[in-house]
Amino acid sequence: MGVDTNIRLIVEQVLAEMNQTAKGAVDGSVIPRQPVTSEEQAEFTDDYLDDLAGIDLQRYLQVPKPVNAELYKDMKLATPSRIGVWRTGVRPLTDTLLRFRADHAMAQDSVLGEVPEKFAAQYNMVPVVTKCSSKDEYLTRPDLGRLLDAENIEILRKQCEKGVKVQVVVADGLSSKAVEANIPNLLPAMIQGLNSMGIAVGTTIFVKYARVGIMDVIGEELKPEVVIILLGERPGLGTGESMSAYIGYNARRGMLESERTVVSNIHKGGLPSAEAGAHLADLLKRILDAKATGVNFK
C-alpha cells in the first residue's frame, strides 16, 4: 500500500539524519554479500536465488488442489506450525525439507555461535566470563555457568559501581543471535524509560557462557537493589532470536528460582525488543516500589 511505502521513505530519511553510525555498526555484523569485483562480472553476480528463509511460511500453501483453499489459508494463519506442506509419496517436498534444515541450521548456529568480541565494548558493557571454558562445557555443565572465578569478580569490583538501583546484565545464554538482535533496541529503550523515572542504572555487564543463576553472584558482589539479566533463550526452529529477562530483587547466593520474575518471548514475532525495553523499565519501577520479585511480587 502507498501509505506503507511513504512511511518507510520518511523513516529512512529521518534515520539517515539521526543515527548513521549506530545503524552502520549493527549492519556490520551481518555477513555481506559477495562484493562485485569488476564491471564484467556484474551481470552474473547479481543472480542470487531467492532467499529460502525469506518465504513467509504462514502464507505459503503447497497443497496443489485442496478441497477448500480459503480455509487452508486461514488455518495456516492460525498457527505457526508447518501445515499445508504437501508431500511426495510419504516424504516432504524438497523446498519444505531444505527450509526446515535452514531453520535448524540457524538455530544451531545461534546456540553454538559467539557474540562478537567488540559487541560488549560497542554498548559500553563490562565483559566477564563464567567458569566455563568453552561453549561445549557451558552446555554440559550448568553448574559452572553460574559461577565467576576470582579474576572475573575482581573485574566487576574495579569497573562496576556498587549499590546501584538497577544492575543490568546481558548474557549469551543459549542464543548469541538473541543478544545481537535485541540488545541494540532493548537496552536504549529500557534505559530511556528508567532514566525518565529517575532510576539510576549501573554499568551494564556482559557475561559470556552464563546461566540465569549468575545474577546471584553479581547481586552478592555489587549489592544492587535489583539485578536484571537479559539472556538468549533456547532457540526454536522459527525463533532463534528469542530473549528472556530474569529479574531478582536483592539477588544473592541461594536465591530460589521462584523468587525471580521472568519475561520471556522477546523477539520480533513476540514482544518486539524496543517495546520490551519500555515494558521492562516500567516493570523494574514497580518491582522497586514493591521491593520484591517472583512469587513475592504481586
Partner: peptide, 18 residues
C-alpha cells in the same frame, strides 16, 4: 500511526519527535 517498516528504537524516537 500507520504501520512502520520496522520497530527499532531509533525509528520510534524519530516518530515520537514528529
Amino acid at each position: 500511526v500507520p504501520p512502520l517498516p520496522d520497530t527499532d528504537f531509533t525509528t520510534i524516537v524519530a516518530l515520537a519527535q514528529q
